[in-house]
Amino acid sequence: MPHDHLSPSGHPYREDNDQPLTYWQTMEIAVRELLVEKGHITAEEVHAQIDAMDARSPAMGAVVVARAWTDPVFKAALLEDGSSACRDMGFDIGPMHLIAMENTEDTHNVVVCTLCSCYPRNLLGLPPDWYKSREYRSRTVREPRKVLAEFGVNVPTTMKIRVHDSTADMRYVVIPQRPSGTDGYSLDQLADLVTRDSMIGVAIVKQPGV
């Protein structure tokens, strides 16, 4: 493999750049160039969009959750209208309707998209592969307790599990429970505990000191 030559940036070429060109990759290049040549988009817009998507990560959602844990007025606003509350924090979450669901002592929430791969991508970044898999999409609405156990979350039978099936227009995010032992934590310290999977509902947050 020609890994001994570097790109103009000085970094090795990405592995996918060295693989044999596929039919669908050929189509991507062709479509992108045609759209630019025809004046529908610019190459700069493609770069900027990729940069914007790369900049989105679960860390953004974690900041929202940490604030909800510490600011009851914000939490109420988030539960009332997730889109507005996140926009007010300066997050460009696009046209999607974001709905925040709060985990409590007696209810655990988990998010799926049975029809496709709808996900709060503007708040959390792109969804993981398993979220888009047939197995997750099929089973989460049928046997959520078993699915959660496979992810390592054993929800007691005394607790209710609510499964939220996303649509193109409605994206859900879970507000996990704040762990005990975090009194006096700063917002940053709290946000560090909040993982992507805990906001999908297939994990609980990291425990303090672990």
């Binding site: 493609v46 990729i50 592969d129």
Partner: peptide, 30 residues
């Protein structure tokens, strides 16, 4: 496919490659 019988959920993930990010960007921009 909600509710259909299905097997074990493979937890493996991958970082998106450049061409995949470009496809995503083309969808968003279009």
């Amino acid at each position: 496919m909600g509710g259909d019988p299905a097997g074990y959920i493979n937890p493996d993930e991958h970082d998106f490659s450049l061409w995949e990010k470009r496809v995503d960007a083309l969808m968003v921009l279009s």
